[in-house]
Amino acid sequence: MDTTISLARSTAGGAAATKVPLHRIADDKTMLRTAAELTRDLIAPRAGVYWADLIASVVIGYGALAVAVTAGSTALAIAAGVVSMLALYRALSFIHEISHMKHAALPRFRGGWNALVGVPMLTPSFMYEGVHNLHHAKTRYGTVEDPEYLPLALMKPWTLPVFILVSALAPLGLLIRFAILSPLSLVIPGFRRVVVERYSALAINPQFRRRMPEGEAARMWNRVETAASIWAIAIVTMVATGTIPLRGFLIAMAIGSGVAVVNQVRTLVAHLWENDGEAMTVTAQYLDSVNVPPPALLPALWAPVGLRYHALHHLLPGVPYHNLGEAHRRVTAALEPGSPYHKASYKGLPGLVDKIVRSTMTVRR
């Protein structure tokens, strides 16, 4: 595979664009300094916003799920299912915030989220904590050590639909993970390490292996995993005995698949995926990432909880989701039109999907 794919950057005089490989893009110190200085007062999370948003998403999500399962009309079941999927997707997206937050700043939020979302949806917070932070490590981003990176734009076109479609199996995979693998890992020597290393991370890099947890992290992991395992076994038992009707179970699984697919589509366009494995500067990482700011409206649904500002998040990972919009407005107004900051903003999902599809079709092999 030819790995000379690069970002096009125009010269100052407006001449023909030159090609600069991602790993050779130097840091733009003006952009980095401006972004940091203008957002120092936006670091503190607002507990009221977090809790209100989470609880509203959970109430709507589970309420709509109940309607979908019990509806006598197919049309009503479908409509309620879509509402449930979008609301639960938003609720689940808080796992990203949890992986970044200082828990002392939002006491009990992680525990509340696990009780309301992580355990019921079989996606506890430990599946992302200790994993996502590696994606933000300057020397790991875009390399084989990044759990959340694949050079999708440099791969073959058929990999994109496979990347999306395989995510539909996530609810089944999670059910197997917690109802079967968790109990087995307690009785089969050596199997516990396999489960932790390979089946305990929300990662897309198949080469990634996570470390065994230690100390308080291990104790928290064990408590939450035990709860998720008991819940998963209870689900299987209730479906097998008819306590949960098969129709209702399949509807819930379909909604879970919808959540996973929408999230995978968002993941597909969260980056340009053009890095070939070399370490990159922060500016290069930013340019390989994506903002979809207003006036676009739909990103609020498919990239919720601040994920529409994914590139900005790579510059300022400590800014809570509810302040990213203000941060973007400040930095946008302060930096001149030629700043790299403006090059990471895109209009919407269709154009981003088209961009990566075209990249896979034009890469030289």
Rank of each mutant, 00 (worst) to 15 (best):
T3C: 09
T3G: 03
T3K: 14
T4Y: 04
S6K: 11
T11W: 05
A15C: 07
L22K: 07
H23S: 14
R24W: 00
R24S: 12
R24N: 09
K29T: 14
K29A: 13
T30W: 00
M31D: 07
L32D: 06
L32P: 00
A36K: 15
R40G: 15
R40K: 15
D41G: 14
I43G: 07
P45D: 12
G48S: 03
G48D: 02
Y50L: 14
Y62G: 14
G63A: 02
A64S: 15
A68M: 02
V69M: 04
A71T: 04
I78K: 00
A79L: 13
R90Y: 01
R90E: 06
S93H: 07
F94L: 04
I98K: 14
M101E: 14
M101G: 09
K102V: 13
A105R: 15
L106V: 09
F109N: 14
G112D: 10
N114R: 02
P120G: 06
M121L: 15
S125K: 05
S125F: 01
S125N: 10
E129D: 10
H132S: 11
N133A: 07
L134M: 10
H135M: 11
Y141I: 03
G142N: 01
T143M: 10
E145S: 07
Y149M: 12
P151H: 08
T159S: 12
L160A: 03
I164M: 13
G173N: 10
L174E: 01
L175P: 05
L181P: 00
S182F: 08
S182G: 05
S182W: 08
S185W: 03
V187Q: 01
V187D: 03
G190Q: 06
V194P: 01
V196G: 06
Y199V: 09
A203P: 08
F208Q: 10
M212W: 06
G215K: 01
E216Y: 02
A217G: 02
A217Q: 01
R219Y: 05
N222G: 12
R223W: 10
R223E: 13
R223S: 15
A228R: 04
A228K: 02
S229N: 10
I233M: 12
I235M: 13
V239E: 01
V239L: 00
T241M: 04
T243R: 03
R247S: 13
F249G: 11
I251R: 00
I251K: 00
S257A: 15
V262P: 06
L272A: 08
L272G: 07
N275G: 12
D276L: 00
D276F: 00
G277P: 05
L287N: 00
S289F: 04
V290A: 05
P293L: 04
A296N: 07
A300V: 08
P304M: 05
H310Q: 15
A311W: 02
L312V: 04
H313G: 00
H313S: 02
V319F: 10
P320H: 13
L324E: 12
G325W: 04
A327V: 09
H328D: 15
H328Q: 06
R330N: 09
R330E: 07
T332R: 12
L335F: 05
P340M: 08
H342I: 10
S345E: 09
Y346E: 07
G348L: 06
T362F: 02
R365N: 10
